[in-house]
Computed example of a mutant assay.
Amino acid sequence: MGDSRFEVENGPSLQLHNTKTSDEGEYRYLIRTNMGQDQVQFTISVTAKYSNPIITSVQKEIENDGHADLYCSASGGYPAGTIHWFDQSNTNWTKSATLQSTQGNDGLFTLSSKLSFQKIDSLWAPFRCVVLNSKYEEEGEATSTLEIKGDYCLAYL
């Protein structure tokens, strides 16, 4: 009988419900009518959108010209994507970050990026992390609300 998640509709179309990453691949099906039969081969590509990213920092207080580590994470996406970092003037800091991509038992990915500064400057704040899918299309972004404390000013990350 086949997989109940496959449903042939009116006309030459097929819908797959409740897809999983394990459904990705090559398929064939046979169409048989009173006019004859035909075999069709097709490929299913599965995608899942990442959750909205979250920016955090382990440090309780970040001092201007001091060390700082910023973290950005997003989960539930497929295939594996990436995270990019930008400051308030839209300078891309991604080359200074490290990305970890972890695939769960369900096949979905969690992305975690760490942006480290030996000496952070409050003028760079706030920072944004942008989640990009495997096609480099933006799926979400977060802007930091962490404070950088300095002698003369207070800036928000």
Rank of each mutant, 00 (worst) to 15 (best):
N10A: 11
F6I: 08
F6P: 08
W124C: 01
S22V: 14
S112N: 12
S89V: 11
S13K: 15
S112M: 00
E137L: 15
D38H: 01
L108M: 09
Q100R: 09
D87Y: 00
H67I: 11
E141L: 13
G66Q: 09
S101M: 08
Q118H: 06
L115Q: 02
D69F: 03
S112Y: 01
L123C: 05
I120T: 11
I44Y: 05
T33Q: 13
T21N: 12
Q88T: 10
E139D: 02
T102E: 14
N10C: 02
L146N: 05
H84D: 01
G25M: 03
Y27T: 06
N92G: 02
C129A: 12
N10R: 07
H17G: 07
G36I: 04
L70K: 07
Y29P: 07
K119G: 03
A155Q: 13
K119Y: 06
S22F: 10
L99S: 08
V131G: 00
G104N: 14
Q100W: 01
L70N: 07
G25A: 03
Y156V: 05
E138Q: 15
L154I: 11
A125D: 02
Q118T: 08
T91W: 03
A142N: 01
G77A: 08
E7A: 15
G76H: 10
G2A: 12
A74C: 09
E7P: 00
Q103G: 10
Q100C: 02
F127S: 02
W93H: 14
G107A: 12
L111G: 08
F86W: 01
R5I: 12
G150K: 00
I83N: 03
Q15S: 15
E7S: 15
V130S: 06
N10K: 06
S101P: 05
E141N: 12
N105C: 02
S13L: 15
H17W: 06
S122D: 09
G25E: 03
W93D: 10
G25P: 08
N90T: 04
P126F: 00
K135T: 08
K135I: 08
K60H: 06
D151S: 11
L14F: 13
K119W: 04
E137N: 12
F127A: 00
T98A: 12
E9W: 00
G2D: 14
E61L: 04
S4E: 10
K60V: 10
L16E: 08
I62Y: 05
S96W: 00
Q88E: 03
S45D: 09
G107I: 12
L115F: 00
S89Y: 09
F109E: 04
S113I: 06
S112T: 05
C72G: 13
I31E: 13
C129G: 11
T94D: 08
P126Y: 01
H84M: 06
I148D: 08
L146R: 07
R28H: 03
C153I: 07
I55Q: 03
T43S: 07
V130Q: 10
M1T: 12
N10L: 07
R5M: 10
H17K: 13
E63F: 04
W85S: 10
Q103W: 01
S122C: 11
A97W: 03
E24G: 14
T33M: 15
A74R: 00
D3A: 08
R128A: 02
